[in-house]
Amino acid sequence: MRYYWQILGILILLWLGLFALAKIELPPSWSISFDAPGLRAWLQDEEVEEQAVRLPQSDSLVQEKEQKEDKTAAKSQQDSSSKYILLAGDSMIEHFKATIKKEARAHGHQIISCIWYGSHTTQWSKKKKLKELIKDYQPDIIFFSVGGNETLFRNIEDRRPYIRDIKAQAKGIPFIWIGPPNWKEDNGFNQILKEEIGDSCYYPSIELRNQLARKSDGAHPTRKASVIWAKAYLEWFAQQSAYKNHCWIWPSLPKAERRSYVKTELDSLLPQRALGHSVRILELNK
């Protein structure tokens, strides 16, 4: 029975090793996603407006321009009506965030955006990124959009616990999950999102599937399409979401019009706090 014990010994060592591995946090997965920054550079129909954050290769977050701003100063800019928004997601939001930023800034909000290329719910659930972002920036509201990479998965029911965990990480902070802008038939991921997050906190981007032009990879919305997507989202956010009264971002206002609201202080359309934002922005710009 000598070799029988040898096989058992190997099995025991293997289990011990696996338990030890479970205690170690391995580096982020080296799995493939459809994001391959640079691969399509020569085919890109549009130039990316801003350099987005790339997360997975290193453990440290690369901060965007506004993240680099002094955090304390940013916090001090907040008043009772100004909000601190965290926008996090996968590569689908690369251009989407530009519009969100523009609109949010126009109404006096501070926004931190974070793109984790190739990410899916597993990573956001298991890794500490979202928790760290929340802890570091203490946002008033979270816009979260992950799921593009999940459209390739077969066992989509497995995503459910990760989705629940991500939602739980928000710890009561207003949280909106912006569904992935599918470029192909949905595999059930959106239905799971809807069930887990709830109608009023889940935006079904999938409904725009046929309206969004795609980049040459056939998957990512182009910059122009992302504007349509972002505006549709903001409209939904302002009118139908659970936090429609939480912070005001939409509709977009031309600069001159914004200024006139401030000047005349006769804004019957806008909530008072939005007016306050505009005033504050003007003050900051001085």
Partner: peptide, 15 residues
Amino acid sequence: LLALVLIFQFQSADV
């Protein structure tokens, strides 16, 4: 065990 670590690193989240 080393083979398993390699597999964990390269695998997708999907089974």
